[in-house]
Amino acid sequence: MMRLPRFRYLAPASLLEAVKVLGDLGPEALPLAGGTDLVPNMKRRQQTPANLVGLRGVAELRAVSGDAARGLTLGAMTRLAEVERGAVAAGWPALARAAATVATPAIRNTATLGGNLCLDTRCSYYDQTEEWRRSIGYCMKREGETCWVAPGSDRCWAVSSSDTAPVLCALGAEVTLRSRGGERRIPAADLFADDGIRHLTRRPDELLTAVHLPPVEPGQRTVYLKLRRRGSFDFPVLGVAGRVRLSAGGTVESARIFLGAVGSRPQEARAAADFLVGRRLGDEETVREASRLATQIAKPMQNTDLTLGWRKGVAREYAARALRELGS
């Protein structure tokens, strides 16, 4: 049986205490929320924190407040199974759908929204056991020097594989990061950095405490389309997230499009979004051009499921399907 490595376990009983512990321990500690990403990574010795800070006892992280008109604040420990339903499904259906496509039902019952945002980047050279990684001489992301995805590269190309991240970016959501020194509220898109190793702008002493969904505007439409091999279990090999505001006449007034799983962070398809403004999604020519523009920015690498050529080849088709859904 695969076993976790040994670690020191701490269970703070309040948010104040949690950020104090994280501040004291710094990079020596990792927060443990649902654990569905961290526990397998620890069993494979990809992550071996000396200290685990269990957040189960921190009630503040489960708080939910607000509504569609004022915007909704979800505690970072809100379980994905809760995001699938209720207020989120009614007001921000793309986020509910993204949550509902994560892994499997049992995992969604345990995994948290904050955890899914902070999901470690993934790579087929990295998401392997210690023995396997030793057999390739390790890789840049952990213990090695080379990025086997692109051996000449000086950066790591591990993939942002969160389903909820591109949606929150597209929605223009914000997140709160709290540390002993205070808290900051930043756009969700600013949480991510374009680097497979340092893929979050969160500091080790910070805790992601809440996600803030902006108010639902009249004419708002949202979409999330996930490409993967099977109907469950699998991480995305492409995620298309979009939010548009349509005029009463059906013209796009504003648009944001993000692609997931084709880079080390959610990729914003700004040219495609700009192109859509003032046009109508019901127009097939518009959809085709916007999907072409959207997938220009995708940088898939040969480090996920399915072949690279195929993923490149069908990205535009999937982007088009997502845009058609936005307009329908």
């Binding site: 998401d127 099977r230 279990f233």
Partner: peptide
């Protein structure tokens, strides 16, 4: 070499 990445049919 994992149940996740060695793909088999689900329900």
């Amino acid at each position: 070499p994992s149940m996740l990445e060695y793909k088999s049919l689900t329900f």
